[in-house]
Design a protein around this nucleic acid. Structure first.
Lengths: 333, 333
DNA sequence: TGATTCATTGCAACCGGTTGCAAAATTCGA
DNA sequence: TCGAATTTTGCAACCGGTTGCAATGAATCA
């Protein structure tokens, strides 16, 4: 089935080295031999075996794409952009789907090493930094995308400043004159939740006249958001909520609507992510946009650079977010 | 960086063959050597290079996962299940993201061959059958998931019977007593659209007293559905619509709501797919469920079987769908 | 105990390429 | 035109494993 280098060499009447060199960028081959080889290769339908060559070159052009966010609609866009971006740069994504309860990175480290990936991208907002660090410790160039910012990072981090986002959300609510606001977070132990809460509270601290509370949903999911908001509506709800992410927000929004209330008239909601469906007119969620395209593009660049220069110092690249005005928050005054 | 077989062999004081055999299922090694080798391997942190071994065994355990559906929310679930299912069976998914306008399979064929994938799964409801057939022609075991059923298939097809689904949708509308119904399809040239229309019309032909019309949105997207429904509402709309898929349905639903009307009181809508968010309470779309889990599980089984026995005859496995009762269609009478 | 069978082991070739090195061929300068 | 400089080429070793085969060692049987 497979046409090999040797077959082509034989057909072209040259050595295997000559064939190898015609397919290697910048190798020394005369135009004449190159032509002969190319003719033979075409005739035979030859394409080089990337895996075999990786043995000697040490490069597989395989990048591990590791995530545990296969339930977050935002990640459809994330996977789309990552795969396309890698492809465009001549790399292949090897997907690793981490179980949600997987806390030990060793299994995936082994996996990635077995396939000799050139590098890895850990795309998750919920995995602890230790995950990506395990890859790095195993000698795999790695970038943690959508990960948590730390002041002394062990690995490259590309993402957003969750604290700043929290503050931005708080300020958005303040600017709209809400007097009783609340944070409705995802799971309390998720670092992104903690950071967003931190920023939100910090903004509100500057306005002691505004009453602020906080509660946490059991997951970043529609159901969890809906359940939590339903509970909140039973006692005395706040005027406006900053929800942990868009899916959670839409769950909360649904609860509000089911209770016969409406956004933004009765209750205000602001989310975070701006996934595609948040813009759908029958959802129309006011939210904070993560610049997904930029984050991904930067992540890919960074992983490539790190493959080139593995001793590169860990770096953090954070991208600014902005509020997307839609229909679940009343207008600024 | 890499610990090799040789290192382990040296440390354990045995030949490389012995080491290789300890890591090969069913090879002949004495318990004593096995123990020695395992100790040495653990100490060194050795894990075998899957790519190197693929050279001699001819198996990479890599499965190409090819799709152009990176914008359809249903496919988040699809990717999740595929990657998890492959992993559970000891295989790795190599993702190929096809551009929407990519009609020539040759580039991806080359890709898959370069990485010597053991097999490929083409997961798409819009790609023509010729795509998967090109893989097969190149000697790559392939399964077309969510693909079109043909009577004399050239490749394995796993999916649903779109004609039957169309009929099921038609019958659902009939059973609910609608007198003026319509098909609101995706792009007219997509085979899935054609098949669904076919079945729908066939069901309605048995009820000549019911008025039936058809129109087509420009894409399987929210916006396209919304635009098309908005247009329909301007003249005399039907009482109920069978929409090409769920995303399209939600777009249409949004248009209905924006016009100040509601489902199912003013207009009925039934979709197809039952993606996760169709069940969200503030969407609550009545739809026809594709058994995604079964389709994917069968696809993986089939691709594995075909890797074992490449001469296996092309086979079609269709799974039954069923109507999921929710809130966009009035109840049966 | 000796002959025979069977499991275990190492050697060496091979999988499909790449690459350092030296030989061969070409180009260049004078 | 000749020799030197440069480019092109093939040889052979190597990348990290696997595997057929023959040799070795252990176990079985009489």
């Amino acid at each position: 089935m497979g046409v090999t280098l040797k077959d082509v060499a034989e057909k072209a009447g040259v050595s295997t080295s000559a064939v190898s060199r015609t397919f290697t960028e910048g190798a020394s081959v005369s135009p004449k031999t190159r032509a002969k080889v190319e003719r033979a290769a075409d005739a035979l339908g030859y394409s080089p075996n990337a895996l075999a060559s990786s043995l000697t070159t040490g490069r597989t052009k395989l990048i591990g794409l590791v995530s545990n966010n296969f339930h977050n609609p935002l990640f459809l866009e994330v996977f789309d952009r990552f795969t396309r971006g890698l492809q465009d740069r001549g790399l292949r994504p090897l997907l690793v789907n981490l179980a949600l309860d997987e806390t030990d990175p060793q299994a995936s480290v082994r996996m990635l090493r077995q396939y000799s990936v050139d590098g890895a991208i850990v795309a998750s907002s919920t995995l602890p930094p230790s995950f990506a660090e395990a890859y790095r410790a195993a000698g795999i160039p790695v970038v943690n995308s959508f990960g948590r910012f730390t002041t002394a990072p062990q690995v490259h981090v590309v993402g957003i400043d969750n604290v700043a986002c929290g503050r931005m959300a708080g300020e958005a609510l303040i600017a709209r004159g809400y007097k009783r606001v609340a944070f409705l977070g995802g799971p309390e132990q998720a670092t992104s939740t903690q950071d967003r809460a931190l920023g939100f509270m910090a903004a509100l601290r500057e306005h002691p006249e505004i009453e602020v509370t906080a509660s946490y949903a059991s997951a970043y999911s529609f159901d969890a958001g809906r359940v939590e908001m339903t509970k909140l509506l039973m006692s005395e709800p706040a005027e406006a909520y900053f929800c942990g992410d868009d899916v959670l927000s839409i769950g909360a929004l649904s609860a509000v609507q089911e209770a016969g209330l409406s956004c933004p008239n009765d209750i205000g909601i602001i989310g975070l992510n701006d996934m595609q469906m948040s813009g759908w007119q029958n959802i129309d969620l006011t939210t904070i946009r993560q610049p997904v395209a930029e984050i991904i593009s930067a992540s890919i660049d960074l992983v490539i650079d790190t493959v080139e220069d593995p001793k590169r110092h860990p770096e953090t690249r954070l991208f600014p977010c902005r509020v997307i005005e839609r229909g679940t928050l009343r207008p600024e005054r």
